[in-house]
Simulated scan of single mutants.
Amino acid sequence: MSARNTARRPLGLALIFFIGFGLLGLAMHHGATAGWDQAALQLAQQWRAAHPAVTRAMLDASSLGGTPVLTLFTLLAAGYLLSVGRPARAAAVAAAMVSGVLALDGLKAVFERARPDPAFAALVQDGLSFPSGHASMSAVFYLTLGVLLAQRHGRRAERLYLLAVATLLAALIGTSRVVLGVHWASDVLAGWAFGVGWAALWFSLAARLRDARGPG
């Protein structure tokens, strides 16, 4: 595969997911998601009431996408990539996270969506709701790291396993936010779309940087 195609494929993927994010944003703004958002919120509340252990499990899962954990994991991942002689990839992981947080803050300010009514929530948090920060940044981090680690393994089964683990973590964290009643379902879907797009964008940029500078 040519170096140009290596960068173009994730860039095309990023465009697809950013378009998906934009469509979700428009649908939410015009109230098209209100029905199933409310239905998912009520279903989550009923499920928590019927299965108390679910709340504890979802709180643990949610913490994996919180700022303290992702900050620590980002530092550890960047340190590992530096230790194995991959400075460009270490920089890409760190830059993807920092820029992702800034972009996310801007998007929240644009959409200005309030969180669900605390009466439906097992966890009450301040701040705006759309898109979900946990869903977005966990997708950015775990998918970016999963792809970078997968590239270091030659066997297809190993690569698929790493990508599956990264996808599962991002999916579990986002789902936990809906189950806990902290976010509307459309917040999480939009967060996943933004996160995958952002991860793909930075993977494309890292590939171009690596091709320009040589291995790293």
Results as ranks from 00 to 15, higher is better:
residue 20 G to H: 09
residue 90 A to H: 11
residue 117 D to T: 10
residue 30 H to K: 15
residue 169 L to N: 05
residue 155 R to W: 08
residue 167 T to W: 11
residue 176 S to A: 12
residue 119 A to R: 15
residue 2 S to H: 11
residue 171 A to N: 01
residue 80 Y to M: 09
residue 117 D to Y: 10
residue 49 A to T: 05
residue 14 A to P: 09
residue 207 A to Q: 03
residue 13 L to T: 06
residue 4 R to K: 15
residue 73 F to I: 11
residue 9 R to P: 01
residue 208 R to M: 00
residue 118 P to H: 08
residue 129 S to H: 06
residue 201 L to P: 08
residue 150 A to K: 01
residue 39 A to W: 15
residue 155 R to I: 05
residue 58 M to D: 04
residue 23 L to S: 01
residue 15 L to E: 03
residue 96 A to V: 01
residue 129 S to Q: 05
residue 8 R to L: 13
residue 14 A to D: 02
residue 179 V to M: 14
residue 148 L to I: 14
residue 37 D to A: 12
residue 132 S to Q: 11
residue 23 L to P: 04
residue 213 R to Y: 08
residue 42 Q to L: 13
residue 122 A to E: 05
residue 111 F to E: 13
residue 172 L to I: 08
residue 202 W to G: 01
residue 73 F to V: 09
residue 56 R to G: 14
residue 19 I to S: 12
residue 197 G to I: 02
residue 80 Y to F: 15
residue 175 T to G: 08
residue 71 T to R: 12
residue 147 V to K: 00
residue 70 L to R: 01
residue 144 T to L: 07
residue 88 A to S: 08
residue 113 R to V: 11
residue 159 R to E: 02
residue 46 Q to H: 14
residue 137 M to R: 07
residue 196 V to L: 10
residue 198 W to C: 06
residue 19 I to Y: 10
residue 142 Y to H: 10
residue 166 A to F: 03
residue 65 G to L: 03
residue 38 Q to I: 15
residue 103 A to N: 11
residue 203 F to E: 02
residue 171 A to D: 08
residue 52 P to E: 07
residue 12 G to F: 02
residue 97 M to A: 09
residue 57 A to W: 14
residue 188 V to N: 05
residue 128 L to I: 07
residue 120 F to N: 06
residue 77 A to L: 01
residue 54 V to D: 09
residue 197 G to S: 05
residue 112 E to F: 04
residue 9 R to H: 02
residue 172 L to G: 02
residue 52 P to V: 02
residue 24 L to P: 06
residue 189 L to Y: 07
residue 21 F to T: 05
residue 43 L to Y: 08
residue 93 V to C: 02
residue 166 A to Y: 06
residue 16 I to K: 07
residue 49 A to M: 04
residue 194 F to A: 09
residue 24 L to H: 10
residue 83 S to R: 02
residue 190 A to L: 10
residue 213 R to G: 11
residue 211 D to Q: 13
residue 19 I to Q: 07
residue 75 L to R: 09
residue 187 D to S: 10
residue 135 A to R: 06
residue 148 L to S: 09
residue 157 A to S: 14
residue 190 A to G: 13
residue 39 A to G: 11
residue 196 V to P: 01
residue 39 A to D: 12
residue 104 L to V: 07
residue 6 T to P: 00
residue 18 F to E: 00
residue 154 G to T: 09
residue 32 A to S: 12
residue 84 V to N: 05
residue 80 Y to D: 03
residue 83 S to P: 00
residue 61 A to T: 15
residue 121 A to F: 11
residue 173 I to N: 09
residue 216 G to Y: 06
residue 184 W to Q: 07
residue 128 L to A: 11
residue 112 E to W: 07
residue 107 L to K: 00
residue 95 A to P: 05
residue 58 M to R: 06
residue 180 L to Y: 10
residue 113 R to P: 03
residue 75 L to E: 03
residue 53 A to R: 14
residue 24 L to S: 08
residue 194 F to Y: 04
residue 72 L to F: 15
residue 43 L to H: 12
residue 157 A to Y: 08
residue 144 T to W: 00
